[in-house]
Design a binder for these strands. Structure first.
Lengths: 343, 343
DNA sequence: TAAATAAATGCAATCGTTTGCGCAATCCAT
DNA sequence: ATGGATTGCGCAAACGATTGCATTTATTTA
């Protein structure tokens, strides 16, 4: 064998004067090969650092056994939450002997479909996916399921499919956060949320609403806005602060938006948290960089990724019944820092 | 064929009463098959949405053709710069029909070796890697090269190997940044760098030294410190500011460190940038979150990733000679914000 | 009309592994 | 000694695709 090509069972067989079948069995330590021969072959293989060709193994087993490659689709890569999730998936996957193939949908439906096709072709054993924002048809996902490729959703869930999923406890996370604002003395709490077409937006809003209700505060529609990024936050917040009865606290759907609010509020000369409290959602890099540091709900992306990988591998290996839709909820945790008052 | 299994050429051949060879040739549009038969077969394949089994294709071609999977090793996943690089690699790879298999070394040599082995087994066509911090032996990389798997380094380069690489222009980036500090009136500029064992640390220091020299400023050793993270920065900066001749500017090896300096300096009551200027390196999320926003050197991770993927694919596809070590330098860009004065 | 040429297809080996089955050789009990 | 286990190994067919070569049939040419 030339240097470029790797040693195969055939090479071992030729060298040792046995058949390929014998080599195969010896290497899998089959008792149908005599102990001595087994050891000779195993040692030879070890010394010449032979390792099996995964491609060939796969082809042979393609009928029965799935591959060990997990497809992961993320809407974005340069994004704290998605990075954390990727990190969680990678950790669980590598610990259990799986590879991850990563693709970015860029929030595009077409790209998502392409990626699914490519992954199907490349025989991933399953896919972990957060749906793109503009996805409204689900045939590509159904195809995958029909082809026997299990799916696990995270973050953005496909509503039309009863598939396995991991979500964070948006409702309780928000409810606790808003409760914290109330118990530290805030009375007029603004809510900046994502468009209500997204499930997480609804859940967070419900948490907000129920926290107000729990403490007997009225829900003021003028304090509720659709706003989920910094630019928008900087645009709409000045008007909020000029209202006759200005808010004394803000709850934002993510840290980025919270930072936008913070910068405007500070610029307008209000003191944070004495005059205005702010709470975000994510607990990413940003939270400890701003001044004062941001009180926020920790989203635990790594845990989400880990659970998603755990479910997928369970489905693949048959620990979980294939037709079962496993649904897990990751608990959040309120991290109190400088943008809210202490009780 | 049952629903779980995908259709193969054999299925088409049986159904249409031809041989598998004919199907293969017809699908590759070979002129040795009559036009009509070709069309019949192609249409049948299309209608039953047949697609080739990549595993089998690969096995068949393993002698000549490489796979289309690129291995990517990152030290960390939850990290702005590495996310950007991943993003760049993903973009270039997917545009050119390649998949990426991502693994995290966690800055561990052992893990790095494991990953390389796993990737070799899984027949990636090449690997893009930033070496782990504690890697000091390079056999695993040499093995890969010997096995014909091209390597492209980014960020942390393997000094013992004359391999292809993409680095950012640390020297010029730092030189320009420090020049900016000087031309905006700073005279005593502190330098917080990474340990000099790392090449990037040396390059950045040289940039700092040469900028001082260019403007006729003396290099004061007491202003040079090994410090590359926030915690350390917060620990050592107070003493710096209590020096008899305190610094009037800081250049930090990364944004995180710069943020640490900023928070201390502000806490001690100095005004930024009027009394103290600060400049970072990265231009990540943090840079626009702190107050005032951080002047920093943009590292252009996405571009680094893109170039790395471009080199690797060139090597794989033979556009670049296999034995050639392609070395590219990505230009940086100084982003002036609020932590430095304007000229 | 026979032979040479061209066109269309099939056979079978190949990639590297796995595995059901069969064949020899050895063993033990009758 | 004879027959039935037992042991140890090889043959060959898969997995799904590609491809050099042989084969068949149709067409042309002398």
């Amino acid at each position: 064998m030339d240097d470029k090509r790797h040693m195969t069972m055939k090479d071992i067989a030729r060298e040792l004067g046995v058949s390929v079948a014998t080599v195969s069995r010896a290497l899998s330590d089959s008792p149908s090969i005599s102990r001595e021969r087994r050891q000779v072959i195993q040692q030879y293989a070890r010394e010449h650092n032979y390792f099996p060709n995964v491609i060939a193994e796969q082809l042979r087993h393609s009928r029965r056994n799935p591959s060990h490659a997990i497809g992961v689709i993320v809407p974005e890569l340069v994004h704290y939450y998605f990075s954390s999730i990727l990190d969680g998936i990678e950790g669980e996957a590598s610990a259990r002997g799986y590879q991850i193939i990563v693709a970015k949908s860029n929030e595009s439906y077409e790209r998502e479909v392409q990626i699914c096709e490519a992954m199907l072709k490349n025989k991933v054993c399953g896919i972990i996916v957060s749906q793109a924002k503009d996805t409204e048809h689900y045939e590509h996902f159904k195809h995958l399921e029909a082809a026997g490729v299990p799916l696990v959703f995270y973050d953005r869930i496909c509503p039309a499919l009863n598939a396995s999923r991991v979500v964070v406890d948006d409702y309780m996370g928000t409810l606790n956060a808003v409760s914290h604002l109330i118990t530290t003395g805030c009375k007029r709490i603004a809510f900046y949320g994502a468009p209500m077409s997204m499930q997480i937006a609804k859940n967070r809003f419900n948490g907000y609403r129920d926290a107000l209700y729990k403490y007997g505060l009225a829900l003021d529609e003028s304090l509720v806005r659709i706003c989920d990024n910094r630019a928008d936050a900087e645009r709409i917040t000045p008007a909020m602060m000029r209202m006759e009865q200005r808010p004394d606290a803000f709850f934002a759907v993510n840290d980025e938006t919270a930072i936008g609010i913070l910068s405007v509020v500070k610029r307008l000369g209000f003191s944070v948290p004495d005059e205005v409290s702010i709470c975000g959602f994510t607990n990413g890099f940003r939270a400890t960089v701003c001044d004062p540091m941001l009180t926020t709900v920790e989203q635990r992306g790594t845990q989400v990724g880990k659970e998603a990988a755990d479910i997928l591998i369970g489905l693949v290996e048959g620990t979980l019944p294939a037709d079962h839709a496993e649904k897990r909820i990751v608990k959040t945790r309120l991290v109190v820092r400088g943008t809210t008052r202490h009780p």
